[in-house]
């Protein structure tokens, strides 16, 4: 019986992240449009886009192989698993311990690897360009990510996100603010947002993520769009779980705790989805070879955190 309840709670999270992801993207687009004094598409437009894409025929290049056709499914499935393992509304879900923070980052790496391969499959210049830049960006931000993991392990004594969220939500320990800055920079770079990449652009030589998926259409494109929305939600969930875990339900909570947890989670997502476009409107996109500067800023903040932690913890 307990196993069935646990399984149910885990499935609730899996359904929740998928269901809410397009709405989060819708909110960011709406806020962005309002900030630019446009009316903007309705918040629910991403759902309609996905539905429309699913009912369009998929156009494949003559030389597209099985890698190209299966990649959207694999990318979506991996992102979904990763999102299911991050604590969102409750800690201690059934499978939350099967991967720690490092494994979740590595799962996202698997998704990136698959998509990069798929983009090289039909043999276009744009596909290779996107893949090569995506891998460069990843190599610039991943060292920062390791330092973030290192800090979490030092402060909370665990890399298990569920356990870390429990520690942080008790209020006795917390992560430094400059780590949040470093993490935000990483999240921006990983999600292909301004100033690293522009999700609204096409046919521009600076695009990265969009260049990789340029050849996709129909149901395949729908899956890739859904996966990138899911990835945004995943990073929001990570921010929430590490830096603002209040309201999160414990492992043995009742129905009311879970309801509060879901409510708090949705509110937090909404706040982050509103703040992201505000930041994006304030800055311009960087040139490709200015990325190291951006990543270097994040890295410096993370190094500072680790160093100060060592000093403050003493010998």
């Amino acid at each position: 019986m307990a196993l069935i309840v646990d399984l149910f709670m885990q499935s609730v999270q899996m359904a929740l992240v998928v269901a809410v992801a397009p709405a989060v993207v819708g909110v960011t687009r709406k806020v962005k449009a309002r900030l630019l004094r446009r009316i903007g598409a309705p918040v629910l437009q991403p759902y309609r886009d996905l539905w429309k894409l699913m009912h369009k025929e998929a156009v494949l290049a003559h030389n597209a192989s099985w890698v190209y056709q299966s990649a959207p499914y694999v990318v979506f499935a991996i992102t979904w698993i990763a999102a299911a393992l991050v604590p969102t509304y409750a800690t201690g879900l059934l499978f939350s311990w099967s991967a720690d923070l490092i494994a979740i980052v590595a799962l996202l790496g698997s998704a990136r690897f698959t998509l990069a391969l798929a983009s090289m499959d039909v043999g276009t210049a744009f596909g290779g360009l996107g893949a090569s830049r995506e891998m460069m960006i990843a190599s610039l931000v991943e060292p920062t990510m390791l330092l973030i993991v290192f800090t979490v392990a030092m402060v909370a004594g665990t890399t298990q996100l569920s356990a870390a969220a429990t520690v942080f939500s008790s209020g006795s320990e917390g992560l430094p603010v400059s780590l949040a800055i470093a993490f935000l920079f990483v999240a921006i770079a990983e999600n292909a947002r301004i100033p690293i990449d522009n999700p609204a652009t096409h046919l521009e030589l600076t695009m990265v993520h969009e260049a990789m998926v340029l050849e996709y259409s129909g149901r395949h494109l729908a899956l890739i769009e859904a996966a990138s929305a899911l990835k945004l939600v995943l990073y929001f969930s990570l921010i929430v779980c590490l830096f603002a875990p209040f309201g999160i339900a414990g492992s043995a909570g009742g129905l009311s705790e879970y309801t509060i947890g879901i409510g708090a989670y949705l509110v937090k997502l909404f706040v982050l989805a509103t703040l992201l476009p505000v930041g994006e409107t304030c800055v311009a996109k960087l040139r490709v070879f200015r990325y190291p500067l951006f990543a270097g800023g994040a890295f410096a903040a993370a190094v500072l955190v680790v160093f100060l932690l060592f000093v403050s913890k003493g010998p």
Binding site: V59, H62, A64, G123, A222
Partner: peptide
């Protein structure tokens, strides 16, 4: 499991129409 579920959902709700054509490349 997730890959199978996704594939089943897509095949249930989306069209299966597929066309082969030349590379688009913008």
């Amino acid at each position: 499991v997730c890959g199978t579920v996704v594939a089943m959902m897509i095949h249930r709700f989306a069209t299966r129409a597929t066309r082969r054509s030349a590379i688009w490349d913008c």
